[in-house]
Amino acid sequence: MIMIYVLAAIIIIAAIFSITQKDLILAVVGTSAISVILSIFYYLLQAPDVALTEAAIGIALSTIIFVIAIKKTERYEE
């Protein structure tokens, strides 16, 4: 039970970290961290299919697409 609160707090901290960062690569890493914790949450809520999908797509593929987009534009927000 305590683990759920700790994980929820980590998600909120990672989200705030993503929004306030100026370096966009770190912001994308924050989003990816949210995906990791979210997939653990889905597993704890007894939905293994959703956890597998979130892990496969949210952690690897979504991040790489954002990184490619950042590489072609600006790395630092103004």
Partner: peptide
């Protein structure tokens, strides 16, 4: 658990 979408993403 799993399926087509998950396997394809992996």
């Amino acid at each position: 658990p799993g399926g087509g979408f998950q396997g394809g993403a992996i």
